[in-house]
Nucleic acid binder design. Sequence first.
DNA 1: ATTATTTTTTAGACTTGTCTAAATTTTTAT
DNA 2: ATAAAAATTTAGACAAGTCTAAAAAATAAT
Lengths: 227, 227
Amino acid sequence: MYICIKLISMNSFTEENYLKAIYKLLEKESVVTTNAIAEKMNTKAASVTDMLKKLADKKFINYQKYQGVSLTAKGEKVALNIIRKHRLWEMFLVEKLNFKWDEVHDVAEQLEHIDSDKLIAQIDHFLNFPKFDPHGDPIPDANGKFHVQKSQLLSELKKNSVCVMTGVVDHSPAFLQYLDQAAIGLGDEIKIKDIVSFDKSLQISVNKKNSLFISNEVAKNILVIIK
Amino acid sequence: MYICIKLISMNSFTEENYLKAIYKLLEKESVVTTNAIAEKMNTKAASVTDMLKKLADKKFINYQKYQGVSLTAKGEKVALNIIRKHRLWEMFLVEKLNFKWDEVHDVAEQLEHIDSDKLIAQIDHFLNFPKFDPHGDPIPDANGKFHVQKSQLLSELKKNSVCVMTGVVDHSPAFLQYLDQAAIGLGDEIKIKDIVSFDKSLQISVNKKNSLFISNEVAKNILVIIK
DNA sequence: ATTATTTTTTAGACTTGTCTAAATTTTTAT
DNA sequence: ATAAAAATTTAGACAAGTCTAAAAAATAAT
Ligand SMILES: [Mn+2]
Ligand SMILES: [Mn+2]
Ligand SMILES: [Mn+2]
Ligand SMILES: [Mn+2]
């Protein structure tokens, strides 16, 4: 006669990372391919196939050979919890430990796998239950619910539009540092003073003060809500 | 012609845990055996032997077959850094996130492996550079230096001694919870009012107020410094 | 409708860390 | 000094995750 001591089947970091990658790919495309996952995970398609079999066995994903994958409710729950932890940790680093928004991602990639419900609940409380992370991305609550901001690209607005910056598309340190140096940040009011028809570059004012030029490439990576 | 991109050889969690285990065993005994490591790591002697070979290859330990192991300077540095991170995280959990001293160990076992110098420096700063963790254990600084308290066991003192509690031997939640319930904690002044000669149990007063009986077994797990 | 191309999966191998069982060395007891 | 016991190491195997190369399936192009 046996007694089962441990029922909770912990997921490995790797499994968690795959589920998160699949979740993020599903935000953009309705069907997620092996190759897309391989690229996002920085690995080879053959490795992805192996993992997909395992994740399907564990009922985290719906997977049929050659047909691409989607997340089951169970898989989505795990993915959202990892994203919740990632974004809360990023917020903690910025708000409490003087990290810049371009420095937090790599550390959060590690911290997101720490397994403690109490810890993440307390961090959430300590931060006063933030709804968005330092990059403007929504933080899911403990049930996986989050606020969607119906924002658009700054590059899509027309002359004289006034908007508020709500997020970034490109999360790279290089882009975030560029924004810092240009003194453009989340929550800032941006007014489009002029659009150069040749290259779609913009003259904008930030918070009614500093006026500057930004390229269309930059504008395509800034998320805003019209005021 | 090749260019070496990544020189930093990250240590695995497992390697870090072995080095920490060896360090802690060396605090008690001058020679550390394979079996002792196996017991501490909750694994089998054969697995330990495999790992010892690897750690010796990497110059973390001095190891000769059948002769036991010791840490090299390099290995000790890694071990002390893990211990530093473990204790700082424990302190953070207690001081900032309302954890009790009996709840922090398992989470700290995970957090101690997070790899970010800036993170741990900022946590240290955020906590105002604590010298001791919630259990009274010293926190090594970034160079591995720490304060040793020359404390002794409460069970070794004689009647009418007055002392201050500085730490615990047993770190188990069960023991820590017992102390909470008995209202005995770090920094408390303990006076030995009487010692029962039959079983060496003690009548003590804590902070000149509550008087209570504790067993010799309990007294053997309380570290104090005579006042 | 066949080819050619791309995508995906399989086959087989490697690494890390673990295990059990067997062999070896060291230590203890006679 | 020799035998018995204990500690340690080796041998061989396994699971997770990765890889390259080859096979199979799906898609695109003629
Ligand atoms: Mn991030
Ligand atoms: Mn973010
Ligand atoms: Mn601890
Ligand atoms: Mn501690």
